[in-house]
């Protein structure tokens, strides 16, 4: 049976208004609500699609955070088989390398054919969790994948390049893939199914151990985008606006 591991992370929900902490270098976590990283959600969907297509055991691993249990039960309702929560992850974000080291230990025990995770997360500076993981597991890595089909000991992954070019690449398994989007949009899962999972599925807790939080990057200031006064509004009726526009374009030497 194919073993698939998906790393799923919670990130700040941008629907809520973000506030900067008094330190001025971080978000105010008190007001934050977390939501599943959209790319990870696609990774989960891709794993479930592969499971439905050719059979697989899907394990979801998530660092603990507020609401992570609900998120994990939702993946179980979609079809995930095993749920693992990394405990002992503090509020301060660990480095991707340190997180990859912890995850690699757990993943080695599972001995998967495929490790999927979102290619990026909007609260991530470096976006290197998946490549770090691949390195530690001694597996190949490809990112920005938008479709996978599994073969015997290998996988074909699809990757979109700018300009509408689609690359199809063969990768020897086991491998780590960074998912940009799943083949189908993430499915809806009815609340009653999630609630049923809350009663029947179980989450395995794994201690994250000591995590490094100092990435060597120092944040000087964190701030919300500031309103700048750079736009020039062209006023008047259509004729006037058109002639002003032509004048500007001529000034710029474009006409």
């Amino acid at each position: 049976m194919t073993e698939i591991v998906v790393i799923a992370r919670l990130v700040p929900d941008l629907v809520e208004e973000l506030e900067i902490a008094t330190s001025g270098t971080a978000l105010d976590l008190a007001w934050l609500r977390l939501i599943i990283n959209e790319f990870d959600n696609h990774a989960i969907e891709q794993a479930i699609i592969l499971k439905e297509r050719s059979g697989a055991t899907v394990t979801i691993i998530s660092p603990e955070a507020e609401g992570v249990e609900d998120m994990l039960f939702t993946t179980a309702a979609k079809g995930a088989d095993k749920l693992i929560k990394l405990t002992g992850v503090g509020e301060e974000k660990p480095t991707n390398l340190s997180m990859a080291q912890t995850l690699a230990e757990i993943i080695k025990e599972i001995n998967p054919d495929l490790v999927l995770t979102g290619v990026q997360a909007h609260d991530d500076f470096t976006g290197d969790l998946a490549p770090q993981l691949a390195d530690l597991l001694d597996m190949p890595y490809v990112g920005y994948i938008s479709g996978i089909s599994l073969g015997d000991g290998k996988a074909t992954a699809y990757k979109e390049y700018p300009g509408g070019i689609l690359a199809e690449m063969e990768i020897a398994l086991p491998a780590v893939l960074g998912i940009q989007s799943s083949e189908e949009p993430p499915r809806y899962v009815a609340i009653s199914k999630v609630r049923q999972m809350m009663n029947t599925a179980s989450i395995e807790d794994r201690d994250a151990g000591v995590l490094e939080t100092d990435s060597g990057v120092v944040i000087d200031r964190m701030y919300l985008p500031e309103v700048a006064d750079r736009a020039e509004m062209l006023e008047g009726d259509e004729e006037e606006v058109a002639s002003k526009l032509i004048a500007i374009l001529q000034d710029l030497g474009l006409l």
Binding site: E16, E17, P185, R187, Y188, V189, A190
Partner: peptide, 30 residues
């Protein structure tokens, strides 16, 4: 149809929002 996830994308968005934020607009409850 809902249990089987056979719903159109717009309805899926609305239900997802209702489940998460308690409103179909996908706005903060606050």
């Amino acid at each position: 149809l809902v249990i089987e996830g056979m719903i159109d994308p717009e309805l899926q968005d609305a239900l997802t929002n209702l489940g998460r934020y308690g409103n179909s607009f996908g706005q903060s409850p606050r």
